[in-house]
Design a protein around this nucleic acid. Sequence first.
DNA 1: CGCTCGTTTCGGCCGGGGCCGAAGTGTCAC
DNA 2: GTGACACTTCGGCCCCGGCCGAAACGAGCG
Lengths: 242, 242
Amino acid sequence: MDRMDMQRAHAAGPDLATVAKLLADGTRAGFCLALLDGRAWTATELARHMGVAPSTATEHLHALVRGNLLAEERQGRHRYVRLAGPHVAELIESLAAMAPDRTPAPRSLSAAGRRQALAHARTCYDHLAGTVGVAITDAMLERRLLDLEHGLGLTSAGARWLEELGITVPAGTRRPSVRSCLDWTERRPHLAGAVGAALCRHAFDTGWITPVGTTRAVAVTAPGRQALRRHLGLSDELLTQT
Amino acid sequence: MDRMDMQRAHAAGPDLATVAKLLADGTRAGFCLALLDGRAWTATELARHMGVAPSTATEHLHALVRGNLLAEERQGRHRYVRLAGPHVAELIESLAAMAPDRTPAPRSLSAAGRRQALAHARTCYDHLAGTVGVAITDAMLERRLLDLEHGLGLTSAGARWLEELGITVPAGTRRPSVRSCLDWTERRPHLAGAVGAALCRHAFDTGWITPVGTTRAVAVTAPGRQALRRHLGLSDELLTQT
DNA sequence: CGCTCGTTTCGGCCGGGGCCGAAGTGTCAC
DNA sequence: GTGACACTTCGGCCCCGGCCGAAACGAGCG
């Protein structure tokens, strides 16, 4: 039995390394981070986004799809990819929460503006993050719609509150209704999970928020500001990007 | 601006790759999986466990400690390492849940026995897994001590039940009280989080379970069988390893 | 049917990094 | 002191894998 066999023999259990390897490359990790916006991107979009040749992107995407991190959908001569599901988004988030934030200082005015818009309010896969996302979570805690008694949880008052707003949360799934997601600009936890996703969806559907350009950034609309003030007591200044 | 700079410029946000790289090697991943037992191991123990030279293990451990995945503690000429905390264990678990299980067929009778003991009952960092871990979770669901209404949660009856048993769960932390952990033998979720940890600790403290050899496997003692039958209605056959 | 453009395949280059063994450092026991 | 032992450092080997460009492929479109 040579060395390789020794190693194999001791390597029982799940094969962490092959999954981790998929995220262990800067380019592939960048793809996944980009896809955290929840949308489907084409291969060339991702290639340009990370500054690599299309051929390189193709290979990476193959690996990610084969590893079940991404799902692909082909339309004509385009190949769209998106995250394979919320579980992948959560894996990426928990990895990101542990990673050092190496966001570089903005090099241009427009880059600084983009960064500020993202820091103010953005989607994080399927829920809200940024200053606004954290503020919503804090307000819900203050009003006892959520509590921290045993980790983050929805109170019965919170359940009623959702119902009054006409927000229905898909039940019965394994997905936790409330999950705490640590985001990388605020470094503070905000509301994720099924409730976070439902709330975000509702905010889009009713026009409280609207996407900014083609990024993950969102802006709070006038009706949105009004609704958030009434339902959560959030101030206008907080909701307006300076 | 050359190609490298382009890539750097687009690589904003958390540096997923460097964290993932730590787990992207079979040997380092094996170390972490071994450390999931929650104990502290010495460098040589881990080296022998994975079949690599001590010098190799040293380098890997340095990387893992520098990356904040492991904590080290030096005692005399020994260097003990353990997982840096529950968040690391959870990261490893979520990675493992996504990884293909490449557990090889046992090559010897003793290996088969070890495997069976592990499959029956074992610790998973700080809570219980295996057939027994899943059975406890199922029984708690059936008795409405837990519910699945919005993800896995502790009911008020469950809180009372814990109190009656004299189990106190540290409150007020960010750690979720109840978390679902997918284990790699049963492929079914079982109770983790602060409650899972407290329950496991209680089971050790009161002698319901006892470690088997130096592995993660545990055996249910006679008092343990009695207690689990009385408090959760678990049958003796289920709790005895065949 | 030829042109465009998004995607894929392939060959080849090159750097990073995992591995070992040999030698060095520090700790404990006698 | 003199071993024994746990751990570390270093040099060197070698392979894996990310990158590109060139060329092929195939869907849309006039």
